[in-house]
Write a protein that binds this DNA or RNA. Structure first.
Length: 267
DNA sequence: GGCTGGCCCTGTACGC
DNA sequence: TGCGTACAGGGCCAGC
């Protein structure tokens, strides 16, 4: 499931392949989530940016091609569209002949073509919190953002509103690092500050390791991430906490599984 | 206006 | 072996 580190790796590998290339053909699956893909045809790609888990592909006609990879989405360059692959949801042919293909088994991904900066059709993107390394975001500001909601702290992280780019993996990892219980509904300034650092640390490690590959994630060059062996909480229910040795627990809060240490992350 | 929970979607794991 | 069921989860949206 691509979160910020994984999407950033996709962005880095995609950029040199597509910038200054013109989109000469395109196709999108019938689903409204992908049907806008051909709208990019005719435009030249000016850049590949990222906001949270969204890829923002700049077009030279003042529009943006926005791609969200959902849970199983993968962007990859191909010499030709894979006509026999039933999970290809969109593709774009560039003027050098390369096909940029979006493969997404579960169809949780999304493609949109919008006026540059007009994200009204993507509510989560429109309301996205600051990037984790935004220099204007400090512990106090993060605490104020969290204080505006009474939802569980983990649900808040997943909402993308307090901070951008955190999904289930890095939320569990950040909460474990900060020793904060996922079901808390309010944090002290000190806890919020620790959580911000914990999330930043988890994302930095993930980025340095090329992302986390659990099932589907691959970079455009086909490589897997290496961060799965660096996980301290996510997916480790029943294993001993690396800090205190207590067995990690798994609970469902707001329909999302959270894995945490009941001792270090005491409620 | 904020929060909660259901839905979308399909491969995988597991039990019978 | 084959079938049925539960589960995974990001984002959206209806209902409260």
């Amino acid at each position: 499931m691509p979160e910020l580190p994984e999407v950033e790796w996709v962005r880095r590998q995609l950029e040199p392949l597509v910038v200054s290339r013109r989109v000469v053909a395109g196709w999108g699956h019938d689903s409204p989530k992908f049907a806008q893909a051909p709208a990019a045809v005719g435009a030249e790609i000016t850049g590949v940016a990222r906001r949270g888990k969204y890829l923002l592909i700049g077009l030279d006609d003042a529009r943006e091609l926005i791609v969200h990879l959902g849970m199983t989405g993968r962007l990859r360059p191909r010499p030709e569209p894979s006509e026999t692959d039933r999970y290809v949801r969109a593709w774009w042919r560039l003027d050098d002949g390369m096909i940029l293909e979006l493969r997404d088994v579960r169809r949780f991904g999304r493609v949109a073509v919008v006026e540059a900066g007009d994200h009204r059709s993507l509510p989560t993107l429109a309301a996205l919190g600051p990037e984790p390394w935004d220099p204007s975001l400090d512990g106090d500001g993060f605490w104020r953002r969290l204080r505006s909601s009474r939802s569980r702290i983990k649900s808040q992280l997943l909402s993308q509103r307090p901070i951008a780019g955190v999904g289930n993996i890095y939320a569990d990892e950040g909460l474990w690092r900060a020793e904060v219980h996922p079901a808390l509904r309010s944090l002290t300034r000190r806890q919020a500050s620790r959580l911000l650092e914990g999330v930043r640390d988890a994302l930095e490690v993930g980025l340095a390791n090329g992302g986390t590959t659990l099932r589907d994630y691959r970079t455009p060059d086909g490589n897997q991430g290496r961060n799965q062996s660096a996980l301290r909480a996510y997916g480790r229910a029943g294993a001993p906490c690396e800090r205190c040795g207590t067995l990690l627990q798994s609970r469902v809060y707001d329909a999302r599984t959270a894995t945490f240490c009941p001792t270090c992350q005491h409620r």
